[in-house]
């Protein structure tokens, strides 16, 4: 996993902003002026259609950070069980991430580590790190509807998708939509991804993942708040279409961006220190 080209976009998951740097980042290079202030006057519906690059730059500015540290909760409801987890999260750049379960006490100390060598799972009981092989990337992450792949999968928006932007109105609400069709020869399992955003702030509203013409899962973004100095949706709800009664809700409780996160956090020693806290 020592790819050297610049990593970009995680379309899959505008999930945990941190772990799974979401969204649609444009060319990593483009040194652009900072994104417009959050409370800039919103463009009206009659304004010219923004370009794909403009939108992705905006999402980038929203979610990307040199580092982040925060607290999340995850609620999982399936036919077989209901889980509620508290987690602490650290990220650095786009390749390093650590998630440590804090609650409930019975599961506290289990962790997921993402390094440039891949995704690792740490079990408190075994006190060992185990690399998750590619064959398991489609499996559930901590028993949720998110997959390991949602954490690992980096699809480059420009490289892997053909994207067009359009305006739609849903229930009287004007929205922007990015139609993203995977290019041939990519490993993306979806036939199409539709990314809905607010037309003014370019805040994510919903992502529909398609298999053929069917939505197989839907992620909705709710509860827009200012967190760590950024205004962003703080709740992500994932619902698989095959089981509409099930869901996973990921909620940011607290977040700081661009603070100091030592690189040693993302090593086995750093992980142990973090889990034993």
């Amino acid at each position: 996993m020592n790819r050297t080209h610049p990593r970009r976009t995680l379309v899959t998951a505008a999930l945990a902003a941190c772990l799974l740097v979401p969204g649609v980042s444009a060319s990593a290079a483009a040194p652009e002026p900072p994104a417009p202030a959050v409370d800039a006057p919103p463009p009206t519906g009659d304004a010219p259609l923004p370009t794909v690059a403009e939108i992705t730059r905006r999402i980038d500015a929203l979610y990307r950070s040199k580092s982040s540290h925060g607290e999340m909760t995850m609620e999982v409801v399936t036919k077989h069980y209901t889980r509620s987890l508290g987690m602490e999260v650290w990220t650095k750049g786009e390749d390093l991430a650590l998630v440590v379960i804090r609650k409930p006490a019975r599961e506290a100390g289990n962790a997921s580590l993402k390094t440039d060598e891949g995704l690792w799972s740490y079990g408190k009981r075994s006190d060992r790190l185990l690399r998750i092989p590619t064959g398991l990337l489609g499996e559930s992450w901590f028993g949720s509807h998110f997959t390991n792949d949602d954490l690992m999968h980096e699809s480059s928006y420009e490289k892997d998708y053909d994207t067009t932007v359009a305006r739609v109105v849903e229930d009287g609400t004007p929205l922007l939509v990015l139609h993203m069709v995977p290019k041939p020869d990519t490993a993306i399992v979806y036939t199409k991804v539709e990314y809905y955003l607010t037309p003014d702030e370019f805040l994510p509203v919903r992502v529909d993942y398609f298999d053929k013409d069917q939505v197989v899962r839907r992620m909705t973004f709710e509860d827009v708040k200012v967190l760590g100095g950024r205004r962003l949706p703080t709740v992500m709800r994932l619902v698989p279409s095959s089981a509409p009664n099930e869901h996973t809700i990921l909620r940011y409780v607290d977040m700081t961006f661009d603070g100091s996160v030592p690189a040693g956090t993302f090593t086995p020693q750093g992980l142990r220190r973090a889990t034993q806290r």
Partner: peptide, 16 residues
């Protein structure tokens, strides 16, 4: 070795 079993309640099922 470490074995990490899929569990009925979604929790990690690992042990040495």
């Amino acid at each position: 070795l470490v074995a990490n079993l899929v569990t009925a309640d979604g929790s990690p099922g690992d042990d040495r």
